[in-house]
């Protein structure tokens, strides 16, 4: 359900470069642009090392200053956050932007009870008395589905199960009714039945409070059920952007198609052939030399390389609402209504 409202977050040409003493600098994120509107969920999808998590940390201003160079712009409500002073970012984090991480245990302070951690956020960002903050914390824990919240307030993170911890973390992220929530692999460490509970909670949140959600995940199944718009990342760049239905029905980037045809699906028959992508993310070539995915791509031609075509592969519009970074995309001849990706991809 994309909305016509002004975007809460606009990321433009974001690049993150890591420099280590005595080593060549590496570009973890390279020219990433996207935006999220209230009540919208976008997905950043990719495998480990594609730069999706670095993107989220760069948006939140959580990257270390030393050895990291962030360029481009991250506009939250029109204000650029790149290079903004720490106190501005601190004011926004927790109050207007919340973040949920993959590992709930290491994101919570093990020596402080859950309740104190939630009320801390409230006392910091909202003018509340201690008693008010406590009542609000109880309300929040109840909202994310933690039973008997007033008793839970006194418990420590290790006393909670994985699903509960993630709920507590979401409660903290929601404490100040943020308008933007960034969830970085929030369910990867959880079991599927618990994952279903958490995803339902996030869905509800977006619908009920109009929060803008940036979902970062490697799981195409999670994306299919949650995100309105999807950005697929590879080697630090967005390589395909599409609405979720378009993306899964007609993937254009061979990488997206390859991912879809290489995951076993619950609804495909026993032994249905999987078409893996050859090699691994290690085989990516620098974007300056050509399409990073070219060495692993079956569609690749010589002009995917910069030395042949004379230019790097650009991200260009590709039909309504779609963008694509590919010179030899997958074709989908028959207008497929309801056709699924596994058939169309190859």
């Amino acid at each position: 359900m994309s909305s016509l409202q002004a975007p809460v977050l606009e990321v433009e040409d974001l690049a993150v470069r890591f420099t280590r003493r005595g080593e060549q600098s590496t570009r973890a994120v390279d020219g990433v642009s996207f935006s999220v509107a209230p009540g919208e969920t976008i997905g950043l999808v990719g495998e480990s090392g594609c730069g999706k998590s670095v993107t989220s940390l760069a948006i939140m201003g959580l990257l270390p200053r030393r050895g990291v160079e962030v360029t481009g712009s991250v506009r939250f409500d029109g204000n650029d956050l790149v290079g903004a002073p720490d106190h501005v970012l601190r004011g926004l984090r927790g109050a207007d932007m919340g973040m949920v991480f993959q590992d709930p245990l290491s994101s919570l302070n093990p020596t402080v009870p859950i309740g104190t951690q939630v009320t801390e956020v409230l006392l910091e960002h909202r003018e509340m008395s201690k008693a008010e903050a406590r009542d609000e914390a109880v309300r929040l824990l109840d909202r994310v589905g933690i039973p008997d919240p007033s008793r839970r307030l006194k418990e420590y993170p290790h006393q909670l199960s994985g699903g509960m911890r993630q709920r507590a973390l979401i409660a903290m992220a929601l404490a100040c009714a943020p308008r933007l929530l960034i969830a970085d692999e929030p369910t990867t460490a959880l079991d599927v039945t618990i994952q279903a509970q958490i995803l339902e909670l996030l869905r509800e949140l977006v619908v009920d409070s109009g929060t803008a959600l940036v979902m970062i995940t490697h799981d195409l199944g999670v994306v299919a059920g949650l995100c309105d718009r999807v950005h697929v990342m590879y080697a630090g760049k967005i390589i395909e952007t599409a609405d979720r239905r378009d993306l899964f029905a007609r993937p254009r980037q061979p990488y997206t198609g390859g991912l879809l045809s290489s995951v076993p699906r619950l609804d495909s028959a026993r032994g249905a052939p999987l078409t893996p992508i050859r090699g691994s993310a290690r085989d990516a070539i620098p974007w300056s030399e050509g399409c990073a995915f070219a060495p692993r791509c079956d569609n690749a031609q010589d002009d995917c390389l910069t030395e042949v075509s004379g230019s790097t592969v650009p991200l260009v519009p590709d039909g309504p609402g779609r963008e694509l970074r590919c010179r030899h995309p997958l074709e989908h001849p028959s207008a497929p209504s309801g056709a699924t990706a596994s058939g169309a991809a190859r």
């Binding site: 085989d283 060495p295 690749a300 010589d302 390389l305 030395e307």
Partner: peptide, 13 residues
């Protein structure tokens, strides 16, 4: 047109 890219592809994996 696939000469150079094939050389690159052979190195994948």
């Amino acid at each position: 047109k696939r000469e150079r890219i094939d050389a690159l592809a052979a190195r994948a994996g």
